[in-house]
Amino acid sequence: MTFEVPIIDITAFVTDGDGEARDAVARAIDEAAGTVGFMQVVGHGVPQEILENFAAALDRFFGMELTVKKRYRVPPPINRGYSPPKSESLSLSLGVAQASRMNDFFEAFNIGVAASEHPGLDLSILDYAENVWPEEIPGFREPVEAYFAEAARVARTLATAFARALELPDGYFEPFIDHSQDVLRMNNYALPPGTVDIDGELTGMGEHTDYGILTVLWADQVAGLQVLGADGVWHDVVPADGALLVNLGDLMARWTNERWLSTLHRVKPPVVNGTIERRRSAAYFCDGNADAVIETLPSCIGEGSKYEPVTVAEHLRVKLAGSRYLQPNTSAPREAARVLAAQRGERP
């Protein structure tokens, strides 16, 4: 069977499409979510100008000197600010150590929904921290916030489509994401010459599943992203023209009792003549309200639930403690087994 990340046009949900058109999109989403866990979304309506301005803002930030960027590191457990190369290990979010040293060579800058945006709610600053913005780059914040707003819109459009695909009432997911602790993680895989040793252990970003409900990913059309297929093989994935990559997180896999997949993926360094080719991406994580309880959906219980209920905050804190603060996650045995099988070259 050929591995393929399907392209799905969601125009019917972006505009006021008729029921038949929306049903067709919902069926395509259900098929992709249940077989691959990834899809390429077109017809999303994000203006090209916003994407171009956003990409330029990323370039300006990551082009600064490392010593300057490190001024925007935020101490744990706050999921904001700058992460230098080789300071994280995504595989630890599943409790799987890659090696004795950190080999995830990407650098990142995070922003997210802040408690101040929901003044009527008593939200924890651990989950809804205020953002930090680089003072050295005038005009950085505006294009980043513009893209953040567009990615949020796409995520909520998809949540509407997901409800239809899962035979749930319209608007079913809205109470779970009306103050969602969403994060935008901007990633850069291009490092100055001499800062990284090109060896067999080097990893752009280690094997992991995403943590929340769904991820909207903008990425360069540069090799590096790999998705683990049902055949136990890592497959290269490059976004189609104009497409945003969308994948499901662990909370959606829990919600759907694994009817839909939270698929393992990683980023390998695209090395050309001993040099890492530049690659950028930005992942918008729609993670859900911190106080929302995730338990098996009524349409997915079947013969029984594979997971105990968990709040979004509880789930995310354990995951982040692994990837960012190097405390292996001991509560993800199902996902960890899949990583270990993949490392041995076995089918998960």
Rank of each mutant, 00 (worst) to 15 (best):
A55M: 02
P77L: 11
R338M: 07
D291K: 06
N53T: 09
V196K: 13
R164V: 01
P192D: 03
R27C: 05
V272L: 08
A32N: 01
V25D: 02
A97T: 15
P84S: 12
N131D: 10
L123S: 08
T2E: 12
Y172P: 01
T157R: 03
H208Y: 09
S180E: 06
T209E: 12
R164H: 08
A115V: 03
H315A: 05
Y189Q: 02
S124I: 09
V233W: 03
A282P: 15
E303A: 15
M102H: 09
R279V: 08
C286P: 00
G249F: 08
P134K: 05
V144F: 06
A12R: 01
A108K: 01
V42Q: 01
E130T: 09
L184D: 10
Y189G: 03
R27P: 06
R101Q: 11
C286M: 13
E117R: 12
A28E: 13
V183M: 06
V41I: 15
E295V: 03
A163Q: 11
A12V: 05
E167K: 13
E335D: 13
M64Q: 11
R278E: 11
V271Y: 13
A21G: 05
R185M: 03
I111Q: 10
Y82W: 02
V36E: 00
F285T: 00
P138M: 09
E88C: 07
A223Q: 05
P298E: 04
A336I: 02
S91W: 00
A165K: 03
G34L: 14
D241I: 03
V227F: 06
G322P: 05
